[in-house]
C-alpha cells in the first residue's frame, strides 16, 4: 500500500503527561484524512510530529518516503502547514508574506512574485495584497495562512482545525478550498472537533482521544457505528408532543427521547426517514418550530465509542 504520509506508533511525552500514546495515522495520495477529537486528544501534537516541528519519543513517521526526523529537510520541501492560529506576519502585507515564504523555499524572485500573485488571486486577496495583514479580518487571515502554506506546491498539507472560530459562511469557504486542493492531487490531513466537518471532507476518519486512536474508518462506516443521524423535533404546540412522538417512532422504529422540554430526538438510519417524518408531520397538521436532521455531535460519538463524553475527560481519568 502506498501512503502519502504514514505514522506508526508515535509516542510523545511531556513530563508525566502522555500527549501521544502509540498513534498510527496514514493517508493515500490525493485523499483527505480527517483526525477527529476533542481539545487535548493529541491531534495537534501528531500534526507537529508529521510537520517535523516535534521529535517523537518513539515510533516513526514518513512523508513522501522521507523520515520526519532523519530527512526533515526533504519532508519540509513537500509539506504545507496551516495551524489553528493563522501564522502570518501581521506587520507584512499579504504579498510580502508570500514573497518571504517563496524566497525561503528557494524560488527565484520573479517566480516567487508570480506565485504570490497567483495565490492571492486564488484566495480572493488581490485587493488586500498591499495591506499589512494586521488589517485583515479573521477569514482573510486564514486564507492568507493557507496561501502561505501552498507557496511551495506541497504534496501533503496539514490543516489543524482550519475552521475553528469561523462563522458558517467562512467555514464553507475553507471547505471549498480543501476540496479544490484535493482536486489538484494534494493529500490533506485535517484535524477537527466536528464530525460534520470530517464527514463532509474526509475519505477516512481517525478518531483520537487521550493520545490514542480509538477508531479508524470511512465516514459512512463510522456513522453506522455511532448511530447515523438524529432527528430533532419541537412542535409549536406542546400539546402535539404525543402525536409527534408517535410519528417519529413509526418512521424510525425507535422510541423518541426528550433531551429537553418540548423537544424530541430519535436516531434514524438514513435521511429517507427524515423525508418521511416531514411528510407525515405535515399530513397530521402539526406545525414545527424546529425540525432538523443532524449528525451525532462529537460528544455523542465519544459516548458511543468510549462510554464517556468528550467533556468528561478529567473525571474519566487516563
Amino acid at each position: 500500500m502506498t501512503y502519502a504520509f504514514q505514522a506508526e506508533g508515535l509516542v510523545k511525552r511531556y513530563g508525566k503527561t502522555i500527549a501521544l500514546d502509540g498513534v498510527d495515522l496514514a493517508a493515500r495520495p490525493g485523499t483527505v484524512l480527517g483526525v477527529l477529537g476533542p481539545n487535548g486528544a493529541g491531534k495537534t501534537t501528531a500534526v507537529r510530529v508529521l510537520a517535523t516541528l516535534l521529535r517523537p519519543d518513539a515510533g516513526r513517521a514518513v512523508v513522501g518516503g522521507y523520515d520526519v526526523v532523519r530527512d526533515a529537510d526533504q519532508v519540509r520541501r513537500r509539506i504545507g502547514l496551516t495551524g489553528q492560529y493563522a501564522s502570518v506576519d501581521d506587520d507584512l502585507t499579504g504579498t510580502e508574506n508570500l514573497l518571504l515564504i517563496g524566497r525561503l523555499m528557494d524560488l527565484r524572485t520573479a517566480d516567487a512574485r508570480v506565485r504570490a500573485a497567483e495565490l492571492l488571486a486564488r484566495f480572493d486577496l488581490t485587493e488586500a495584497a498591499g495591506r499589512p495583514a494586521r488589517t485583515y479580518s479573521g477569514g482573510m487571515r486564514r486564507r492568507l495562512d493557507l496561501a502561505a502554506s501552498l507557496v511551495g506546491r506541497p504534496d501533503v498539507i496539514y490543516l489543524d482545525e482550519p475552521t475553528t472560530g469561523l462563522d458558517p459562511a467562512k467555514r464553507d469557504d475553507v471547505w471549498n478550498m480543501v476540496r479544490a486542493l484535493v482536486a489538484d492531487g494534494t493529500t490533506v490531513l485535517l484535524t477537527t472537533q466536528y464530525l460534520e466537518e470530517a464527514d463532509a471532507l474526509a475519505d477516512e476518519i481517525t478518531v483520537m482521544d487521550h493520545g490514542r486512536v480509538i477508531a479508524h474508518d470511512t465516514p459512512a462506516d463510522l456513522k453506522r457505528i455511532v448511530g447515523g443521524q438524529t432527528i430533532a423535533a419541537r412542535p409549536a404546540d406542546p400539546a402535539r408532543l404525543g402525536d409527534t412522538g408517535q410519528i417519529l417512532a413509526a418512521v424510525s422504529g425507535h422510541q423518541p427521547e426528550s433531551p429537553s422540554r418540548g423537544v424530541l430526538t430519535v436516531p434514524v438510519p438514513d435521511d429517507t426517514a427524515f423525508t418521511e417524518a416531514v411528510r407525515r408531520l405535515a399530513a397530521a397538521g402539526i406545525t414545527m418550530t424546529e425540525l432538523s436532521l443532524r449528525l451525532p455531535s462529537l460528544d455523542e460519538v465519544f459516548l458511543t465509542l468510549t462510554g464517556h463524553g468528550a467533556d468528561d475527560r478529567q473525571e474519566a481519568g487516563v
Binding site: 517535523t52 516541528l53 509539506i79 493563522a86 506576519d89 515564504i101 525561503l104
Partner: peptide, 13 residues
C-alpha cells in the same frame, strides 16, 4: 509564541 516561527520551522531552511 505567535506562530510565525512554526511556519519557519516547517520550511526547508
Amino acid at each position: 509564541k505567535k506562530g510565525v516561527f512554526d511556519r519557519f520551522r516547517s520550511l526547508p531552511i
